[in-house]
């Protein structure tokens, strides 16, 4: 088996040769071209045994089944709500997936979720045509009240959450804010206005420096420093 042409965590560009020979398998974000494996998009290399895959570095959100996202109510229909997902496609939250409560036929649905409301929802089905079905039955799925909503680059979301949520829980404790991160790059922050601004600043910094190794420790130090400075 020949060595691949790239190392773990290398930045690769579309068309770049990642490996040659049949020893490796093309994973997500790569394709096979004859006996070569090439990159299909801009991304970071991740070699997992014999498979080479790419972690995307940029791009709009593409809906995926199982993702928890924050959406905005865009329209109210006869049997549910149309939700804006911060992607090219709109989603449908139907009445039976939204609540267990009994809603009389012909009731005014805006009383539950009205235009412009932000909701935390889970995607439970995406068709090949990118029709999205949403559900609000699950822990943490709710309508968002108060606080502020910011939008970040969706490809930076895994970095903002961190390993097993280490980054976001650190920001929560340090800034004393409640934070919900949607996989679609929409983030809800709620707390004291001053703290909200601090949390937003930190998230913007992570978004900018998503490729710096050891970012969690660096951010933690900075937050502790600003917290001490205030006291």
């Amino acid at each position: 088996m020949t060595e691949p042409k790239v190392k773990d965590n290398d930045v690769v560009v579309p068309g770049e040769e990642l490996a040659s020979g049949m020893g490796y398998l093309p994973g997500q974000g790569t394709y096979r071209d004859g006996d070569k494996i090439r990159a299909n998009r801009l991304g970071l290399v991740h070699i997992d045994g014999r498979a080479i895959k790419l972690v995307p570095l940029a791009g709009r959100y593409l809906p995926k089944s199982g993702d928890v996202i924050i959406g905005k109510v865009r329209d109210v229909t006869y049997s549910g709500w149309i939700i804006d997902t911060n992607s090219a496609y709109r989603a449908m939250l139907s009445l039976k997936d939204a609540t267990n409560a009994y809603i009389r036929k012909g009731a005014d649905l805006t009383k539950f979720y009205s235009f412009g409301d932000y909701v935390v929802v889970k995607i439970f089905n995406v068709t090949s045509q990118n029709l999205i079905d949403l559900s609000m039955k699950g822990p943490g799925l709710r309508k968002l009240e108060q606080g502020r909503v910011i939008t970040v680059d969706p490809s930076k979301v895994p970095r903002i959450i961190g390993k097993e949520g280490s980054m976001v829980s650190m920001i929560k404790t340090q800034t004393n804010c409640r934070i919900t991160v949607g996989q679609n790059g929409v983030i809800w922050i709620s707390g004291e206005p001053k703290n909200e601004i601090m949390a937003e600043g930190v998230i913007r910094k992570i978004e900018r420096e998503a490729h710096v190794p050891g970012l969690t420790d660096k951010i933690k130090k900075e937050l502790e420093k600003t917290n001490k400075g205030e006291q």
Binding site: V13, P14, G15, G29, Y31, D33, R38, N40, R41, L42, P56, L57, A58, G59, R60, S155
Partner: peptide, 11 residues
Amino acid sequence: LADAGITMRDL
């Protein structure tokens, strides 16, 4: 297009 994260097989 590459910077926008579009899937493309080459530049």
